[in-house]
Amino acid sequence: MSQEKPTIVNCPQCGIPVVWGDVSPFRPFCSKKCQLIDLGEWADEEKRIAGAPDMSDSDGWSEDN
């Protein structure tokens, strides 16, 4: 029998190698601390997913004709 090599990823917060499996409950993070730091950055809108810009009245768009 051949044992498969575990998948290793770097923690997106601190860069420490993390085994992608049941032995790492906070994957892809190395710890609860890194997980919470990342969550806080999303909550503070320091991180965001790029998308289309908002259409607002300042862009010359209006529901009124």
Rank of each mutant, 00 (worst) to 15 (best):
S2Q: 13
E4V: 02
E4P: 12
K5Y: 08
K5M: 08
K5Q: 08
P6V: 12
P6E: 09
P6S: 10
I8Q: 00
I8F: 03
I8R: 02
V9G: 01
N10E: 03
C11Q: 00
C11A: 00
C11E: 01
C11M: 03
P12M: 11
P12Y: 03
P12W: 02
Q13Y: 00
Q13S: 04
Q13N: 12
C14Y: 00
C14H: 01
I16Y: 10
I16W: 10
P17S: 11
P17G: 03
P17A: 04
P17H: 07
P17M: 06
V18F: 03
V19Y: 04
V19P: 01
W20S: 01
G21R: 08
G21E: 05
G21A: 04
D22F: 11
D22K: 14
S24H: 10
S24T: 06
P25A: 14
P25N: 03
F26N: 15
R27D: 10
R27Q: 15
P28A: 00
P28D: 07
F29A: 02
F29P: 08
F29N: 02
C30I: 06
C30W: 06
S31H: 02
S31T: 02
S31C: 07
K32M: 09
K33V: 12
C34K: 06
C34I: 04
C34M: 04
C34Q: 11
L36I: 11
L36G: 05
L36K: 13
L36C: 08
I37T: 13
D38M: 12
D38K: 11
D38V: 05
D38P: 06
L39K: 15
G40D: 03
E41W: 14
A43I: 13
A43G: 04
A43T: 11
D44E: 15
E45R: 07
E45C: 05
E46K: 12
E46P: 03
K47P: 02
K47L: 15
R48L: 09
A50Y: 08
A50I: 10
A52Y: 13
A52G: 07
A52L: 12
P53G: 13
D54K: 12
M55H: 01
S56H: 11
D57V: 12
D57C: 11
D59W: 07
D59P: 02
D59V: 07
D59K: 08
G60S: 00
W61L: 07
W61H: 04
S62H: 10
S62F: 15
D64F: 10
N65C: 08
N65W: 09
